[in-house]
Design a protein around this nucleic acid. Sequence first.
DNA 1: AATTTATTGTTATATGATTAACATTGTTAT
DNA 2: ATAACAATGTTAATCATATAACAATAAATT
Lengths: 220, 220
Amino acid sequence: MSAKTNPSLKAANLPDKTIERLSQYRRNLLQCLAKGKQHIFSHEIAQIHHITPVQVRRDIMLIGYSGTLRKGYDVKELIELIGNILDTQDGLNAAVVGVGNLGRSLIGYFSGKRSKLNIVAGFDVNPEKVDKIYAGVHCYPIDQLAEVVERERISIAILTVPADNATEATEKLVMAGIKGILNFSPKPLNVPPHVYLEEIDMITSLEKVAYYVKKQSGAE
Amino acid sequence: MSAKTNPSLKAANLPDKTIERLSQYRRNLLQCLAKGKQHIFSHEIAQIHHITPVQVRRDIMLIGYSGTLRKGYDVKELIELIGNILDTQDGLNAAVVGVGNLGRSLIGYFSGKRSKLNIVAGFDVNPEKVDKIYAGVHCYPIDQLAEVVERERISIAILTVPADNATEATEKLVMAGIKGILNFSPKPLNVPPHVYLEEIDMITSLEKVAYYVKKQSGAE
DNA sequence: AATTTATTGTTATATGATTAACATTGTTAT
DNA sequence: ATAACAATGTTAATCATATAACAATAAATT
């Protein structure tokens, strides 16, 4: 592929926020497609996501796709193109580390949904959970982490252990060669630069809601 | 209170990201305090959270607090001041709507942790869950929502219902007078402008991790 | 055929957030 | 007492993101 015409090169530096929105666009585009909708306008996408049509068009521009005037974007093509950006050809495997309520909720959520992003293992310290199957996902003991990560080609970890175990678990994940971590624990984690870390801080999010509720309620 | 000296007025327009960080600072400051640490430098806070000391000082400046040279910030005072920003005097009550794995995980997480932000009720459509107690939280049927929200003075909803029920549940929440929603469902929700909406999109976050893992792994 | 309209695609501007630069000042060392 | 230092506090510059302005054009209308 020549550098000039390679669209993935153009997409090499997509803004972070655009990546997030592409994921969200795709989810809804899939629903549109399921409903038989073949074309969609930027303002329709915008309305669904409560953003401006310009933003939608800009995002789509950045991934190098073009719609047709007066007809909008071809839903199927757009989905495919977003897939080219977000997915790998062979898909990636993920593991849930910490099979508590949250971990099981995530397993249930993903099981069988995406073909390009699969949860293929769970890990837990609790012997009662080990070797059980949760929504089709086998739960292994933590000390088999390195072994299973290699065998199942797991590159992503979803960290849902209690705060006190988060640091230790992270070290093991890094040692095992994990490439990306989605951290739900409220502890700031230390990972080397080649491991991508994404945080979901539910407590902070809730406190933020509280802050804005307070603010709107005529302040103190 | 004069406008000039009222610190809450100054704090009226704190950046969104600062609010998030304040919540995170506080969590760790509480731990520091528990360990007996009475003073802390900006670079220490920064190291914990993997950000720059300048950012920390700037955030603290914005809330109108001052440390002492060579000694850093008084941990206790800083915690208190962050509390003034984030908390209300009497605290706020929250409800978990959708008592599945995710909902229960959140209930378990918060139960008895924060005095200023309490989960006081759960709601679910499943008759088997109704009137059960989860980690001290009573689960009500959805059709008692308005009633219980008023009685328990609930202003915040944590929405953890399946995607298909999210829109309907949101309407009911808005009708019931909820002031802020923390939405875990992957559906874009429609709320009037006086209701603050914060989204946690776990699927998008995971797809983002996948994207960056792909990107780092030598592309394609 | 000419004009209007509805839409996309792109460039320019504005806003928001982070980082850098630097000014300030107690404390320690000489 | 003076100088050097280690920290804070603030202003300025840079960077990222979103919004606004507008250019282009195919389709519909007259």
